[in-house]
Design a protein around this nucleic acid. Sequence first.
DNA 1: CATAACCTTTGAGTTAAGTTGAAGGTCAAG
DNA 2: CTTGACCTTCAACTTAACTCAAAGGTTATG
Lengths: 159, 159
Amino acid sequence: MNIGELAKRAGLTASAIRFYERAGLLASVERRPNGYRVYPPEAALKLNLIVAAQKAGFSLDEIRSLLPPDLVNWRHDAVLEALRRKVKDIEALQARLAQSRAHLVALIGEIEAKPGGIECSENARMVLARMLDGKLEQPQLAPADLRRLGKSAGRRRTS
Amino acid sequence: MNIGELAKRAGLTASAIRFYERAGLLASVERRPNGYRVYPPEAALKLNLIVAAQKAGFSLDEIRSLLPPDLVNWRHDAVLEALRRKVKDIEALQARLAQSRAHLVALIGEIEAKPGGIECSENARMVLARMLDGKLEQPQLAPADLRRLGKSAGRRRTS
DNA sequence: CATAACCTTTGAGTTAAGTTGAAGGTCAAG
DNA sequence: CTTGACCTTCAACTTAACTCAAAGGTTATG
């Protein structure tokens, strides 16, 4: 199977697959005499796994450090530890989101609760004040690698 | 007040404040004869507001489009709409996170449930298979601007 | 034999929200 | 008069996960 065929099967682009190879997620692969990469059918499985792990919030770096070269000799303990850590990360993010949501909902309530009486600027000043002290201390969170978890799951190839 | 003083008060760096000005979030400010920026005390309030909005998941672009120049003539309806939209975004992300978390927890359970009997490679293959079809379709989500919501709230200046 | 549809590598561009560095002007203290 | 702490601009760098373009080789088809 050539790279284009594999890309189609995995729902990726050929350039993404080359990128994964360059990034060390895929071992360097067999070549035809003309230089074309040739993939065995299992390659699609590995790509699907990578995509799934990404959707679950793992970075390519994390995935590389956990993926065994052969797809069968997993480092059990490391994988379990990473999974548990990721669950913790998600829970922390969930807590933060719940706080943010609550703040926003409260803010909406305060803004709506003034049908037009008290001068607009008066109102604005009060709402502002409440908004600012409400936000001043939120839970400190793990490093920035949580960002990934917020990514869209859509983005299937459109061509 | 000079920029360094303002930065200290707002918990930002001077370069961040210059960046916000360049990005159109802050109107260009009065200068001393030597070129130094001079800020009125209210400036800190505006910066606090920007920081608060960012923590709530708004991008600088969004903030710029909502922030009135005078801090008092808000476009009520636009602000309310933006707030409600942001709450929706947060809820969508929460749903996605709950799914991811559930998947990971289930996966951990499956891996743990094999004390060492069935060949490791057998187990790996099964777990893999279940993992892949579980993930294949997740809720499609709004564009990628949800990323911001995952950012750490920590990162108070350390110098 | 021309053309399209593949494939190759390399290098640069994308986004967001800043940070860092160079090169230089200004100001107060000792 | 020099040291150190400020301030100025501008340009380039950072991160992640790719994408895109250029320039060229290969293969199948009409």
